[in-house]
Design a binder for these strands. Structure first.
Lengths: 200, 200
DNA sequence: GTCTATACGTCGATAGAC
DNA sequence: GTCTATCGACGTATAGAC
């Protein structure tokens, strides 16, 4: 039922199309893309399965749109966080916080879909999404470089590798981190910052 | 065809059952569990689809067995590496090396299956696999604690969180790390060790 | 232990009325 | 823009011969 879909936020308007995307993020996350049928999707928003194909030309297109939306939304939010921060340490912390938030906050389901349903995209869609992500990754590398030049990160560390390691560390949190647990997201961000810093 | 399956190593004997498991690790990794059909699987080992069900009672059982085998094999290898190392720093490095090797070496496909096809297990199987992993995780926590007591890891760091972050950092490497690239696995292990150490 | 044949459900997507 | 009805393909698993 439509009421089960918690929030249509994240730039997803309250239109049939937006509701479908929100439901898709939820179902693709919990059941996986393959196991989710267009009939599941239709039921979740309260229409019939045939009606879906008026809004999207295929099931794969729905997946691609979920991924596009979440990248756009989070790239914007990350840029905001970066603009509000001064100094390399705070900028780095802002990036970490922003990424942790993407994964464990309101956009968490869509982010998990972005990570785990990658294979279900056609090669053309994969290429398109990769292109969207590249700006996002460049912001990370620039910030890390700034931090290393300021002496916050040891000179012998490979920043390209460091970014990959941190991306894994952060994204993995969706497996174990509980928003309502003991650890606050901000504490987690600081623990993750230690991964990069020279002197903890 | 059977010849396409590179190695039946990793404790998988050269029996019909072992060949099926090796083929399953490969196919589940590249196509995903859902997209892999029992017909694909049968073709890969050169039998008919119906014959599979003489060896396994369901497709899900094959998945569970792939996961069980890879956990057993890698827990053993990790213990070996640990036994050969002296001192907390080397022990930690041994764990990192061992885990990187599990993910990027011969057992890489099965490890990726373990991580990414989790949802496809029945709840009963999930519980069973979790139990198998718990010993493995305890070895990590013990080693981290030893390192912290020796002053290698800053006292303000939460070791439970650190292990989770490192698990993510390491497992993520299967997405981007290329065994035949510039970076050697041992270099990567050292870069990953920096994530934990107080003074890089 | 592998074969052939097939039961039987479910899938994505389409067609055409309203 | 949503409905109903349905097509044709493909999925897992089984039955029984060899």
């Amino acid at each position: 039922m439509a009421s089960k879909v918690k929030k249509l936020a994240n730039g997803m308007e309250d239109t049939p199309r937006g509701r479908l995307l929100a439901a898709a993020a939820h179902l693709f996350r919990t059941k996986g893309f393959e196991r989710t049928t267009v009939r599941d999707l239709a039921q979740e928003v309260g229409i019939q399965s045939g009606s879906i194909f008026h809004h999207f030309k295929s099931k794969e297109e729905i997946l691609r749109c979920v991924m596009e939306e979440v990248i756009h939304f989070n790239t914007g939010r990350m840029r905001e966080g970066l603009d509000k921060s001064a100094g390399p340490r705070d900028k780095l912390l802002a990036l970490i916080r922003s990424e942790l938030n993407s994964i464990n906050g309101e956009t968490g389901e869509a982010m998990a879909v972005l990570i785990y349903e990658w294979r279900c995209l056609t090669p053309e869609s994969q290429e398109h999404i990769l292109e969207l992500r590249s700006h996002y990754e460049q912001l990370w590398l620039d910030t890390l470089q700034e931090a290393q030049q300021a002496g916050l990160i040891a000179p012998q560390r490979d920043l390209f590798v460091l970014r990959r390691l941190m991306a894994g560390a952060i994204s993995w949190s969706h497996y174990w981190y509980k928003t309502d647990g003991e650890i606050k997201l901000d504490q987690l961000a600081h623990q993750a910052l230690f991964l990069a810093l020279h002197e903890s």
